[in-house]
Design a protein around this nucleic acid. Sequence first.
DNA 1: ACCTTAAGTAATCGACTGATAACATGTCAA
DNA 2: TTGACATGTTATCAGTCGATTACTTAAGGT
Lengths: 202, 202
Amino acid sequence: MKAEKVRRMSAEDRRALVLEAGTRAFAHGGYHGTSTDAVAKEAGVSQPYVVRIFGTKLELFLEVFEESVGRITAAFEEVLDERPFDPESEDDKARMGLAYTELLRDHEFLQVMMHGFSNGDVPEIAAAARRCMGSVFATIQRTGWDDEQVRDFVAYGMLLNVMISMRAPEHLAPGDPLTTLAICAFGDELAVLQAPVLESPA
Amino acid sequence: MKAEKVRRMSAEDRRALVLEAGTRAFAHGGYHGTSTDAVAKEAGVSQPYVVRIFGTKLELFLEVFEESVGRITAAFEEVLDERPFDPESEDDKARMGLAYTELLRDHEFLQVMMHGFSNGDVPEIAAAARRCMGSVFATIQRTGWDDEQVRDFVAYGMLLNVMISMRAPEHLAPGDPLTTLAICAFGDELAVLQAPVLESPA
DNA sequence: ACCTTAAGTAATCGACTGATAACATGTCAA
DNA sequence: TTGACATGTTATCAGTCGATTACTTAAGGT
């Protein structure tokens, strides 16, 4: 019957794979709204195995969360390290903005971040959220902007996160005020977010 | 034994009471993280009763959510209707900002709103979120500001919501970058948010 | 006083969840 | 080849959740 020998993976690789699956799963339901079984299904392993790897669901979420925020700060750091950053330059500012909007296309990290940010009732998650928000702020500070500029940049990011969360780009109606907001918040990026990826148009 | 006659309430009053309790409960745990029993306990009634009043947990949440957003837009409308609003006036802009920071002190509405905004995986909640975000945007538009200004105002609000959600004001450490962000985001309001209400200082 | 209506609860159900324990099997060094 | 260890699963449990049913009793008109 079962001729297939089941290939195994190193614990390290499997852990990384489950972490990725966890990112996708938690991006949808958040901490409370996602079961360890959902993560397991996404990863293609059994539910008890994912809890054995991470100990508890909470620890799994915390790892997923911190990794997601890490990816986001990494995207900014890439821009900052690419070449000297001029705090006065509108062009450099646009580059930072672009780094974020590129993240929007694959918005799992952002949604995980958002879920972490809004789970203040779980002390460990709230603590992680504060730590991560601090590190994001500190990273943006490296631009040389004054604190108010950094604050506004972060605030703008939060708006985009919220708009993504509520699936605004996929639900635009002509007369809707939300459409106006979406247009002036996402700009050119809106078109990209509306349509899913097209496969090799003939 | 039980001498107490149980006083009853009109369905209307009880409904309002449970709605209020729901606001407090959902503000903490959000949709997925709050049980109907938690709402019932908060309201001082039995769990089956709260589901009978609202039909399902989802409908209860939607009512709580829409009412919360209603309170928020109402706060803005109060400012707008108070006297003619000058879109060029820095003073009038400050009044709008103040309307929001006053909401921060009793932040249950904001947290419920935030939870609704980040629950995009539940279609009904996401739809309500889009509707409500649209109505908030439309309300702020009544200032006469151009769309970019309105957008930035809303974005700023989202940042404050997130900071409140992660309990930033209660966890300020001297060297922390988050503290810097908190200071330049909340301004004078920060002191108020840090300390719970003091009872008649001797 | 009576009796219909409406407010409210206790009991309970089936589904789900996170976690534990026991078991099975692939991998690899000696 | 073998045996120890690491990878992974099945079975299962106790707790929780949303919802339904059936019951209880206060309120209020006649």
